[in-house]
């Protein structure tokens, strides 16, 4: 689905579209099942957000009411702090010695970037769905990517005369990866930034992970660490385990 249509849908649900745009969108939705489904989903999402907000606010107000007018609030006594056993210091000391040993071992056996790249980097497998309208148009770009001819992908992309923003996120992502493969790292990061701005939930986790790997390939460990930190903030991230494992090795 085009970004423009997605934006129209979001604005329609938020109530910020003017009458002309509303009519345009609803006319499109009448004949396009995908747009109608998206509208329906966005409406549900907005309603769920409102439902959550009202539920929480109501609970807060009930609590205020009780505190102001009714019940005495039970103040739970804090559990008494436990007395520290005398041998705690000894255990801590042993812990420090053991962890120092492991840290030393880890530093001594720190893998090189090449080893890490071999362990963690694989080109993204492009799965082309039936949803997007532009896949047929760009079939040769997809074919080149899937056959591993990344230079051809980048050449084709650079030669496109259309607005590149209109490419589906999957295709754009394949262009970013192709740039990584032929070591056009800065171009790859530019395309990743475009994808970041899009916030396409279907591919955002991949964008986060491959952007981190791009920094790994660039030997930019500072940016690699901050990219991994971003992934590690979210335990449900698709690449959490891999990011965690890579972070421990750098």
């Amino acid at each position: 689905m085009e970004d423009r249509i997605k934006k129209l849908i979001e604005e329609y649900i938020a109530g910020t579209l003017d009458d002309g745009q509303k009519k345009e969108l609803l006319k499109l939705a009448e004949t396009n099942q995908e747009i109608m489904q998206e509208l329906n989903f966005e409406q549900h999402t907005m309603n769920i957000g409102e439902h959550l907000g009202r539920r929480e606010l109501k609970m807060e107000l009930n609590q205020i009411h009780d505190e102001l007018f009714n019940k005495e609030i039970e103040i739970q006594s804090k559990p008494k702090s436990l007395a520290k056993p005398k041998w705690l210091g000894l255990i801590l000391l042993i812990g420090v010695i053991v962890s120092s040993f492991f840290i030393f071992q880890k530093v001594a056996t720190k893998p090189t970037p090449d080893v890490l790249i071999a362990d963690y980097y694989q080109p993204f497998q492009l799965e082309v769905g039936e949803r997007s309208s532009d896949e047929n148009v760009f079939q040769s770009l997809i074919d080149d990517y899937q056959s591993g001819d990344y230079g051809a992908v980048v050449n084709q992309y650079n030669g496109l005369s259309i607005n590149k923003e209109s490419l589906s996120s999957d295709l754009l992502f394949s262009v970013a990866i192709s740039n990584v493969e032929i070591k056009n790292f800065n171009e790859a990061l530019t395309v990743f930034s475009t994808l970041d701005a899009r916030s396409d939930f279907n591919i955002q986790d991949e964008v986060d992970w491959y952007k981190a790997l791009t920094f790994l390939k660039m030997d930019d460990f500072q940016k690699l660490k901050s990219s991994l930190t971003l992934i590690l903030e979210d335990k449900q991230h698709d690449y959490y385990q891999k990011a965690n494992s890579l972070m421990k090795k750098i």
């Binding site: 939705a29 329906n40 989903f41 999402t45 769920i48 396409d200 955002q204 971003l230 903030e233």
Partner: peptide, 27 residues
Amino acid sequence: QVAKNKKLRCIKKLRALIGDSQLKFIF
């Protein structure tokens, strides 16, 4: 960016849960 990712993940999950819900709106 972390907040954005959290929101995207949640929407992804909701989309899967809502799926082909029979509850349709009239726009």
